[in-house]
Design a protein around this nucleic acid. Sequence first.
DNA 1: AAAATATGTCAACAATGCTGACATACTGGC
DNA 2: GCCAGTATGTCAGCATTGTTGACATATTTT
Lengths: 174, 174
Amino acid sequence: MSAPALQRLDPVRQTSHVEAPYDLIELIFFAYRDFVGEADLVLAAYGFGRAHHRVLHFVDRLPGLTIAELLDILRITKQSLNRVLRDLIEGGFIEQRTGVADRRRRLLVTTRSGEALARELAGVQSARIAKALAEAGVDTRMAVTRFLAGMVGEGDRAHVLELVARGRINGSHL
Amino acid sequence: MSAPALQRLDPVRQTSHVEAPYDLIELIFFAYRDFVGEADLVLAAYGFGRAHHRVLHFVDRLPGLTIAELLDILRITKQSLNRVLRDLIEGGFIEQRTGVADRRRRLLVTTRSGEALARELAGVQSARIAKALAEAGVDTRMAVTRFLAGMVGEGDRAHVLELVARGRINGSHL
DNA sequence: AAAATATGTCAACAATGCTGACATACTGGC
DNA sequence: GCCAGTATGTCAGCATTGTTGACATATTTT
């Protein structure tokens, strides 16, 4: 368990309260802003945006992903997904294959250039993460991983962790 | 310094590369999604969005903030800021005061209801952070803080850390 | 008085979310 | 084989939040 939080009595309202971790709230904002901002620069060169990045990333990580699974991961609507997916397919970054067991399904996979772009994007984000971990100290990676997992909503936690693990198993080479 | 990363030789390209920390890349996405998503629910009840949240948050934390400083923090354009700021002012959540030294400046401060909403939002985000820290272990807070600071772009790092510290000093009561 | 600064505003547009309705193709149970 | 359910695509329309560029006003600085 964690150390008991520093507690104060508010002089006006006379209600007990703990000071919110404003530093972390703000660092999360700035860190995320720069984390995705750097990828945005790369994407802009291809005429893509963040939404394209998310789709490309998960298709690269989970080859053979279906539309339904992707919708579930991204939590957006079919309409929003289709707009960006169409761009990626027309641009030759993603291909669709008809499902074998169920021919209604479209199995999404990255093409060679799609894989290359996905890696390029993962590369810049990796570099930033590696630098931050190195600066934070050797033994912080586990702590950070656990913290981030704890930030995920309890309902999705299991699903998210399973997804992350699935990507690890698939490896990058199907 | 951190432990040397596990290095492999790519069998095809014959270039050395390290496996990207896909787990962290994805956890950052899911954690952020849920972190802001919970606040969105509160905001929706007031007819506000994320953009309103950011403005309200920083005005609450840094009372007397000027437009120029806010633009610099949020990295958006005047037009985008003015739209949401107008909503917040008309809704009675933020007030403007004319600068004393320089009468061109508008010093932004939260009203009572603005402060209350800002606290409510900080409250739900705090709770999530506290839970995640508790689950991750007692001594993870420093590690997480350093990691997040390291994720901020090097150019802004000093500025961001100064801002976070300034908020801590201002406290919540000007 | 002129130049620079802080702010506000207008018009137009782009990216990415949303809803609801409807069409097509395929599967699976009976 | 039929029919209900499922997986997907698509259309029209709309909201939020970002962008650019131009121009107006008030105030300060030189």
